[in-house]
């Protein structure tokens, strides 16, 4: 099992610091949700965890080794990232897009093999895109497009998958479809770390929650410890009612009003 950890991690762009001395452990084999207000540094942190940003301080460790010292292609077979709002090149088809997920697995000698084809098929089937495989991505709806990108990350077949707001653009059913798909993958052993905006989804689907505010961890732990009226007031500036979900027993958050 691979464990992804951040130690005293500071991240930023040029001179602007965004994430400050952050310590973080994402339990392996579990689903971790990152929540927090717009601009608090969730995407920045996710990019840092995926070695897209070089730490200003501290390190991100994969099984105890700093990811910046690992060969990038080797890392890409273990750790995948689906960024927020990716844009597909004009004219690419769903199948071609998903096939790009195989990039870290291919070499000059072995370009496209049976394993790649299987991974592609699985990714198509898991995201219910098989019928749309030969459609051009530009011609899909926002939700179908998002699923195509998720399928690309699935084709990468990594132990750990980082997703930045994978449910944006999706209708209720497709949101649940994506989240259930992630749960299903998680049961097969994939560690999932994702940014979510819907607190109730986070409470329902994640094993571990991390609340970020202004580049710092405000709280982390199980939903019951993290989704509280107090923490929601502090991080989002929203007065809410938190009560146990009548079916699951997990916390259910009903926002009431913004605190001026």
């Amino acid at each position: 099992m691979t464990i992804l950890r951040a130690e005293k991690l500071s991240l930023g762009y040029d001179t602007t610091p965004i994430v400050h001395l952050l310590d973080l452990e994402t339990p392996s084999g579990q689903i971790t949700a990152l929540i927090g207000p717009n601009g608090c540094g969730k995407s920045t942190l996710l990019r840092g965890l995926a070695r897209l940003l070089k730490p200003k301080h501290g390190a991100v460790l994969l099984d105890g080794r700093a990811i910046h010292t690992l060969p990038t292609r080797q890392l890409a077979r273990v750790l995948g990232l689906l960024p927020q709002l990716p844009t597909a090149p004009e004219g690419i088809t769903v199948r071609q897009l998903i096939a790009q997920g195989r990039y870290p697995h291919q070499t000059w000698f072995q370009q496209w093999g049976q394993e790649d084809e299987t991974a592609l098929r699985n990714a198509l089937a898991l995201t219910s895109l098989t019928d749309l495989a030969d459609r051009v991505v530009d011609t899909l709806s926002g939700g179908q497009r998002q699923r195509a990108w998720i399928a690309m990350s699935l084709a990468q077949e990594t132990d750990i998958l980082l997703l930045d707001e994978p449910t944006t653009y999706l209708d209720l059913a497709h949101q649940l479809e994506v989240l259930e798909l992630l749960v299903q993958l998680n049961r097969k052993g994939k560690t999932i770390i994702m940014v979510l905006h819907d607190l109730n989804h986070a409470a329902h689907y994640a094993d571990h929650l991390i609340v970020l505010s202004d580049g710092r961890v405000v709280a982390q732990g199980m939903a019951g410890q993290v989704i509280t009226q107090e923490i929601i007031r502090k991080t989002f500036g929203v007065e809410s009612l938190v009560m146990p979900h009548p079916v699951t027993g997990k916390p259910l958050c009903l926002p009431l009003r913004r605190i001026a």
């Binding site: 990038t72 960024p83 790009q100 990039y103």
Partner: peptide, 23 residues
């Protein structure tokens, strides 16, 4: 031709490309 596959990945955007292990 050697660069063709890299270009395909590069076209997905810098973040995605790096996430896929493209130097």
């Amino acid at each position: 031709l050697l660069g063709a596959r890299d270009l395909n990945v590069l076209n997905l955007g810098d973040n995605v490309a790096q996430g896929l292990g493209l130097p």
